[in-house]
Amino acid sequence: MAEPALDIQNIRKSFDGHVAVRDLSLQVPRGTVFGLLGPNGAGKTTTIRMILDIIEPDSGTISVFGQSSIQGRAGNRIGYLPEERGLYKKMQVRRVLKFLAELKGVRGRDADKRIEMWLARLSLTGGDKDWGNARVEELSRGMQQKVQFIGALIHEPELVILDEPFSGLDPMNAQALKDTVVDLRREGRTVVFSTHLMENAERLCDAVCIIAHGDKVLDGTIAAVKAEHGGHYVAIALGQDRPSAVGDIFADRSLVNRIDDSNRTVEVELAPNANAQLLLRKLIDAGATVERFELVQPSLHRIFLDTVGATGVEAGMSGHG
C-alpha cells in the first residue's frame, strides 16, 4: 500500500502549561479529502502548524509522504492557505505570486505561465481590468482571497492544507473554492482542511477527524463514522399547523431519545428498542400532517454535537479552531 500522504503519531504540544494538542494520531490516505473538525481552540490550527513545521511538536512524529525530517519536510509538495489571510499590501499581484512561487521552488517562465493560468481561471484577468498588475491593497477582499488561494496552489502541491478555507467567503467564492477542491481530488491530490461548517465537511470530505480540547474524539471515513455513531434517526417534516399533542409525543422518552427541531424539519433520535412505525402512527393519530418521514443516518452536524458536547460547540460555532 502506498505511503499515506500524512501520518501523525502521538503528537503533543503545550504552550506555557496549556495543552493545545494531546497525543493526537491520524492518517490521511493519498488522494482523499480529509476534514479536521473541531470547535474553537480545539487545536486544529496548532496541529496544522505542526504539520507545516512552523512549530515543532513537544513529542510525537509527523511524516508527510514518508518524510519525517524536520528540515524541509516535503515543503515544496505542500500548499498552505492559513486561516488568517494576508499578503504584502503594497506589492503588485503578479510579483506577490511570483515570490510565493519562488519560495516553493517554481521559477522563471514556468512560474509566469502558471500565474497567468490561475489568474485567468479565477477571473482576475480577462475582464475589464487586468488585476494582476494592481497592487494587492487595490483588490477587494474576495479577490485578495483568490490571490492567496492561487499562492497556495501555484506550485501544484500534492498535499493541500486549508485552514478554515470557507470563513469570510461570499457564496460565489465559496462555490469556486468547493469546485477547486473537487478538481484537486480528481487530479489525485490530497486535501486536508479544517472547518467548523459541518455541511461543507459532509459534502466534500472522504474522511474526517473531530478534535476537541486537544484530544481526538473520533476519526474515520464519513460512512464509517456514521455507521459507528448511527442510532435510529428519522427526519420528519410536518405541516404548518402542528397539533400540541405532537410536543407530547416528542417528549415521550420511551419513544424518542432526543430531537433537533429546525422548525420545518425535525431530526429525531429514537429511543433504544423504539419503533419508527409506532412513532409515525402516533403522529398521524395526533392529527399532524406528515409531509416527510424518512429513516436517515445522523448528520455530521449531529455527530459533532453528540461527540464534542454542548459546551465545546457553543464556543466553536462562532469561530475558528
Binding site: P82, G86, L100, L103
Partner: peptide, 16 residues
C-alpha cells in the same frame, strides 16, 4: 511588523 499583522508571515514561514 507589517508581515506579522498582515499574516503573510505564516505563509512565508510555512515555506522557509
Amino acid at each position: 511588523m507589517e508581515e506579522k499583522t498582515s499574516r503573510v508571515a505564516e505563509v512565508v514561514i510555512s515555506s522557509v
